[in-house]
Amino acid sequence: MVTKSDTESVQIEIFPQRFLKPDTAQRLLDEIFQGGGILRITVQGPNLPRMVPYGPGKGLPIEEHKNMLLELADQALELRVKVGRIWLELDSEDRIEGIRAACERMLPFSFTIKRKQIFHTKPTVSDYAKYGGEVDDKRILGMIDPKAKRERDMAILSDTGGDS
C-alpha cells in the first residue's frame, strides 16, 4: 500500500472517456499546469502518422496531422499522438483534487483518475541503449517510448521541477 510517508511525489493517470482534440488537450494541460506542483507530464495515445504507412497510398502526406503543437511554459512540442491518456507526476497527493477539478472544468465528458506507478524508476535495457550507462537526470526515465526522439518529443520546462 502506498502511503504519503512512503513517497513524496505521486503519479496519476487521467483517462478521458473520449480522445481529446489538440485544442481540448491544450486547454486541459494549461489548466493543470497553472495549478502548479507538476513534476512530469506525458501525453499518450495512438500514433498520428505524418504519411500513409501502408498500402497503395504509402508515403502520401497526411495534412490533417501536421502543425499540431502543444505549448507549455514557453516550450512547444509537436503533437504526434491522439491524446488518450495524460500521465502526471505531482509533488504531493494533495494536488490530485485540484487536477480532478481542472478536468471537470475542461472536459465535456467523463474521465477517471487513477493513482499508480507510471514512470519506471530504474533504467531499462532500452534506456541503456538510448541514454548510455549513466543517466544524469533520472526524471527522463519512462517519459518517452524507446523509438521516440528525446530532442523532438520531450522538453524540460524547469530545472527545479514544478513550482514547489
Binding site: P16, Q17, R18, F19, L20, K21, T24, P46, K82, G84, P108, F109
Partner: peptide
C-alpha cells in the same frame, strides 16, 4: 486501427 479504441470527441 479504430475498432477497439475510444471515440473522438
Amino acid at each position: 486501427h479504430g475498432h477497439s479504441l475510444r471515440l473522438d470527441e
